[in-house]
């Protein structure tokens, strides 16, 4: 799959000396959805701002569709749509005039049919004559998405698109993102909601303190870094883990009624059959068992805390 956005050795140091981005290398493939995860202040927004021309990088290169965003900014920016995190709208403008403005600003000739399509897709068509100041917060966010889509971008940045929106709107957004991807738009979104990345993304990148510490296929990442947990529902609660099982990474939960065993799914021997056999030998019966895979959230927390401890992947 060809790369539509290429970032090489991107560094941003602010005037006060704060290093917001450190040597970021990232390739975004055409038509994929990439989720950038990271705690507040990690550098996600700075990364997006540098690509979109809002922040001037200190060093490094960015190309969109083969165009350098600094030297050939016109064709590069014309490809990109941005929905920033902050709700910033022209309060006194109508929905229709603000999306028309956005389309013109990006150098596209008027196309009422396209704008109508965008507004209908975002359930804004009935509100097109309303002033933006009269709309609810969720509607304003839809307006910002409509503005970003007005010039038919092939790359769309969504900076925390679902922060502070209700469940219904979040579902709508997810559907919209999927339908945009189906129409060929490449989407890069940042989010705090890991389930969002898990639900939406093809690939996931984790940014921490200005560094892109991992970027990988979501499924592969979950497989590579994910751990599985076996939960055994015991017939009789245990007061403590038997001494014979002291070498196993076990934990007693639910007042001794559940025995949890964590294992690496990629290991040659997971140890599950051996453990079950030992339990049987020790005369510890169980009623039920289930396994669960660690979520992206747990992976993310592990990655960040590993970094904090100074270890590397």
């Amino acid at each position: 799959m060809p790369s539509i956005l290429t970032i090489r050795q991107l560094t941003k140091t602010y005037a006060n000396g704060f290093v917001a981005l450190k040597n970021i290398d990232l390739d975004i493939r055409k038509g994929e959805i990439v989720a950038l995860l990271g705690p507040n202040g990690a550098g996600k927004t700075t990364l997006i701002s540098a690509v979109c021309g809002i922040v001037t990088p200190s060093s490094g290169t960015i190309t969109a569709g083969g165009f350098d965003t600094a030297r050939a900014y016109r064709p590069a920016r014309a490809m990109i749509g941005l929905v920033p995190q902050e709700l910033a709208t022209d309060a006194f403008e109508s929905v229709w005039s603000t999306v028309s403005f956005s389309r013109g600003l990006f150098g596209r000739a008027p196309n009422p049919a396209h704008l109508e399509h965008v507004l209908r897709a975002l359930s804004l068509w009935d509100k097109r004559k309303d002033r933006i100041m009269t709309l609810s917060g969720g509607m304003k966010r839809r307006v910002m998405i409509a503005k970003a889509l007005a010039h038919e971008p092939s790359i769309l940045f969504l900076d925390e698109p679902t922060a502070g929106v209700d469940v219904e709107l979040r579902r709508d957004m997810w559907n919209l993102v999927r339908s945009l991807r189906e129409s060929g738009v490449t989407i890069i979104l940042t989010t705090h909601y890991i389930e969002e990345a898990e639900e939406m993304a093809d690939r996931v990148g984790v940014i921490h303190k200005g560094e892109l510490i991992v970027v990988d296929d979501k499924v592969a990442l979950m497989k590579k870094l994910g751990r599985k947990r076996l939960a055994l529902h015991l017939q009789e609660p245990l007061a403590a883990i038997p001494a014979a099982l002291a070498d196993w990474p076990l934990a007693l939960k639910a007042d001794g009624c559940e025995l949890h065993y964590e294992f690496d799914i990629n290991a040659e021997h997971t140890g599950v059959p051996t453990l079950l056999r030992q339990l049987s030998d020790l005369g510890i019966p169980f009623r039920d068992l289930n396994t669960s895979q660690s979520s992206l959230e747990e992976i993310f927390v592990n990655l960040v805390s590993d970094r904090e401890k100074g270890s590397h992947l």
Binding site: C52, G53, I54, Y73, R74, P75, A76, R77, A78, I80, L82, P84, E86, A88, T89, D90, A91, S102, L105, F106, G107, K147
Partner: peptide, 14 residues
């Protein structure tokens, strides 16, 4: 002041 400058800065206008 309102923050809408982002659009101008990200647009292909000289």
């Amino acid at each position: 002041f309102t923050g809408t400058i982002y659009e101008l800065l990200s647009a292909p206008v000289s």
